[in-house]
C-alpha cells in the first residue's frame, strides 16, 4: 500500500541523483517565478511558487529535509529580492520544519490531503514574511500588502500545489519498506529506494 511508503530520513545523505533533481526543481521554479508568475497579478499580488517548495518537501520528506531545502530556497530567493538578506531563508527553514512536523507519521500524505496543507503552509509563510517585514520597518506590510498576498498565495497554492508536490516527489527518492514476508513482519529486510 502506498500509505506505508516513507521518504528517506533527513539524517541520511541525499543521493547524488536526488540532489541534482532537487536543484533542477529549484532552478526551474525560480525561472518560472521570475518570468511567468511574477506577472500574474491580482490586486498587486502574485502566486509564490518558491514558498510552496519547502512546505512540499517538508510534507513529503520530513522536517530535516524540509528545513534544509527551505533554507537553500530561501537563500536563492534572497538573491532576487531587495528585502534583508536571510529573511527568506529564515521563513523557508521554519516553514519546511513546521510542514515536516505536521506529516502524519512517516507516511507520505495523499495528494488530496497534501494540497490543502501546502496551500495552508504557503499562507502561513506569507503571514510570517509580512510580520517579519513589518518588524524590519516596511510600512503597511500588514495592512496594504498582506491581505491581497494572503488570498492570492493561498489560491495559487491550491492551483500549483499538485504540480509542486509531483515535482518534489520526482526529485526525492522514497524508501519502500520491505514487503512483510510470512512470519517476518517486514522488519528484517532492508528498504528499497524508488523515485
Amino acid at each position: 500500500m502506498s500509505q506505508v511508503e516513507a521518504p528517506l530520513e533527513g539524517s541520511q545523505p541525499l543521493p547524488l541523483e536526488a540532489l541534482v533533481r532537487l536543484s533542477l526543481v529549484v532552478v526551474v521554479s525560480l525561472v518560472l517565478q521570475l518570468s511567468l508568475l511574477d506577472g500574474v497579478r491580482v490586486a498587486g499580488a502574485h502566486p509564490d511558487l518558491l514558498v510552496l517548495l519547502p512546505v512540499a518537501v517538508g510534507l513529503l520528506a520530513g522536517p530535516d529535509r524540509g528545513a534544509s531545502v527551505g533554507f537553500v530556497v530561501g537563500l536563492v530567493t534572497d538573491l532576487v529580492l531587495p528585502t534583508p538578506f536571510g529573511l527568506s531563508a529564515l521563513v523557508g527553514t521554519l516553514l519546511g520544519a513546521a510542514a515536516g512536523s505536521l506529516r502524519p507519521g512517516r507516511a507520505r500524505p495523499s495528494l488530496w490531503m497534501a494540497v490543502p496543507l501546502v496551500a495552508a503552509g504557503a499562507a502561513a509563510g506569507t503571514v510570517l514574511r509580512g510580520v517579519l517585514l513589518a518588524l524590519f520597518g516596511v510600512p503597511k506590510a500588514l495592512t496594504a500588502y498582506l491581505p491581497p498576498a494572503l488570498v492570492v498565495v493561498t489560491v495559487g497554492g491550491l492551483v500549483l500545489g499538485p504540480l509542486v508536490l509531483r515535482a518534489v516527489r520526482w526529485a526525492l527518492p522514497v524508501e519502500e519498506p520491505a514487503r512483510p514476508g510470512p512470519g517476518l513482519g517486514g522488519s528484517a529486510a532492508p528498504g528499497r529506494v524508488r523515485t
Binding site: 522536517p63 534544509s68 527553514t93 520544519a97
Partner: peptide, 16 residues
C-alpha cells in the same frame, strides 16, 4: 533533526 533546524534558524537570523 531539531538541532539542525535550530542551527539553520540561527544562521538565517545572523545573516538578517
Amino acid at each position: 533533526t531539531w538541532l539542525r533546524v535550530l542551527g539553520l534558524v540561527v544562521v538565517s537570523a545572523v545573516l538578517v
